[in-house]
Design a protein around this nucleic acid. Structure first.
Lengths: 360, 360
DNA sequence: TATTAGCACTCTGTCTGTTTGAGTGCTAAT
DNA sequence: ATTAGCACTCAAACAGACAGAGTGCTAATA
């Protein structure tokens, strides 16, 4: 059998109705609401065909029809329209994301806005530092026997850890240490430094600094490890209660427990393809088989990838939500692309970079 | 009427039973379960008295009795026992909180442990930086026209923000700037700096650095403002579903929406008295009238106050939960008290502190 | 006089049967 | 090819019956 023009129109109407009502849609109501010049009986016949073709299902004998995963997929691929973003939302986005804040702040804000707009659970993960390149390392004095290791990477993140030493330091020690570490590690990715055993080399180079490296290097490595993690920000989890599919406590519990496993969720998001990705029902992993997930990536400095997403029932306003996500990520990308003039003058300062490609 | 020894015993039994079953407890079951040598009829009479005295209520004519807020209060004040912490929990706490991590990490971990142990929603707020004293300020070169302002305070927090400048800097500029700012602001609290208009003075002192301060000072103030905020970490919100009082969706929604208003919750916690505080039912603000909240503060460097708390139904295992919270906060306090030797040698390094009282 | 047994009464929750409404599928008429 | 009509199905809403757990009161008891 073939998907005639008319079948398509009927299918689209059913999907549309079901998305907004969450009730199985019957032939009679459909013919009333959409006045497509067909009697309920005709529509019934078409519906029956559509069911045979796998686009519709029947919760039970005397209920209306519900779109199948296949139908949603068709809808998303062929029938979905992009929506314009209301002016006030644009305004809000530019206000709250406009300033060049830290990646973490941006992710959090974006998740908030997304949840407000879509009335669903939304989240954002910040980029993993895995592929970010070291710009420079600085070991700074803070107090007696306490120093701070500061690591700056090319994605605009600044990471620091305080380290308590077992021996005294001299400012010259630290300065030298900063220089040696920066010189050896500059341009390498965090991942590289952690996997290739760079520590060996470093420790050799720093042997002259007596016992200092013994306490500083491990902390340095720990800080790097922390930079591998993505942070997950989530918003709007109490919104599920207003959706009929989660009116039963078990269902609500299901989605909320899922979403509380932050590590798992982060994993799912990290492993997703880039670009705007929509997965529906069966296309998801087992624990999301009756949900839909829409995500898009955003980039910091054109390379590191964070993700923004919305999770909810398959009955989703795919068009609107993807438009909003798209708009948001585009906006974030733009705000992180603002690049200053790059007149690589060679500054010589304590542990300062000799040449950089820093963009914020 | 007076609370006889026997009435107390009966009341205690009722509260105990209700806490573990969540069902109104009747005279018959009580006499069975506790074998206190009294017939149901006698117990009924006593119950009736207890009801007259305001310790029990009656959901409806033929239901068992339920403790009133007044009863819980009595229980908490007079009958509650402290519990020993199981060895394995102690172990876990010392493992996960033992290392001297950053305050934020500690708060997060503590909330996790607390939620695991109590099976309730738990949270932790990190101390506001309001009262932390500036140790020193360092303005560091990162790239062309990009510097990082780094602020170190006496509570072990290190805060930094990247700033894009409109003009070029020289390392000497920055060094001088760091020194002037540190000299002027050292020992002052974040709050003081923000309220007393210190900026004026600073800008005058820094006039020699031409246009640099114009871009750096505002960012500096912004960073300080960020330090005023407490962070709220929350865990275990999907646990509410296993509690009978939240089996209805509205009830679950109620508590989860409450808990999603992070700002509000932070406020409630911040404004609470220090020490172990238990508030029950009516003692809470309007939106928590049928819940109980247990909190305790923890200190960083003996002064800054963070809070740890558990929120749930009034039917709470007050004894166990307070014991765990107590143990946790004691532990955190201890881990933040470890103070290194303080042999104030005067180190002269780039922007290094001239004298310090840094404790980690 | 305090305690207890006994009994009538009350309320909730569950179970069952009935009705109603929305829907389908099929067939026969258009 | 389309549609009207009709029998049939199922879920949800409703009402009545019943069991269970409880109370309160009264009268008997130690």
């Amino acid at each position: 059998m073939e998907l005639s023009e008319r079948k398509l129109r009927i299918l689209q109407a059913i999907i549309g109705d079901f998305i907004s009502s969450a009730e199985p849609v019957g032939s009679r109501t459909l013919s009333k609401n959409h006045d497509m010049g067909l009697s309920p009986a005709t529509i019934r016949n078409e519906m029956s065909d559509l069911e045979d073709m796998g686009y519709l299902t029947h919760p039970h004998a005397s209920a209306g029809r519900v779109p199948s995963d296949k139908a949603y997929r068709l809808y998303v691929d062929e029938m979905m329209k992009t929506h314009d973003i209301p002016e006030e939302l644009k305004q809000r986005i530019s206000e709250e994301l406009g300033t060049d804040a830290a990646p973490d702040e941006v992710a959090k804000k974006a998740a908030e806005i997304l949840s407000d707009m879509t009335n669903m659970i939304s989240f954002a993960i910040t980029p993993s530092g895995r592929e970010s390149k070291l710009l420079y390392v600085n070991v700074l004095p803070v107090a007696d026997r306490t120093v701070v290791i500061m690591i700056v990477t090319d994605d605009g993140k600044i990471n620091n850890t305080a380290v308590r030493l077992t021996t005294d330091y001299t400012p010259e020690n630290l300065e030298l240490m900063s220089k040696v570490m920066t010189h050896n590690l500059k341009g390498k990715t965090v991942n590289d430094i952690l996997t290739m055993n760079m520590v060996q080399t470093l420790e050799t180079d720093l042997r002259s600094l007596a016992s200092l490296p013994q306490t500083v290097i491990p902390s340095f490595m720990q800080t790097l490890e922390k930079m591998l993690d993505s942070n997950l920000y989530m918003e709007g989890y109490s919104k599920v209660f207003s959706l009929p599919e989660y009116s039963e406590t078990d269902k609500a519990k299901e989605i909320l427990s899922l979403v509380e496993k932050k590590d798992h969720l982060t994993n799912v998001l990290v492993n997703r393809d880039d670009g705007l990705v929509i997965t529906i029902g069966d296309e998801n992993s087992d624990d999301m088989k009756d949900m839909a997930l829409i995500t898009a990536d955003y980039r910091v400095n054109g390379k590191l990838v964070g993700k923004l997403g919305v999770l909810g029932p398959k009955r989703m306003r795919y068009g609107e939500i993807s438009s909003v996500i798209k708009y948001l990520t585009d906006n974030i990308n733009r705000s992180f692309e603002i690049t200053g003039d790059e007149d690589d003058a060679d500054k010589e300062a304590t542990g300062a970079p000799e040449e950089t490609e820093f963009e914020l």
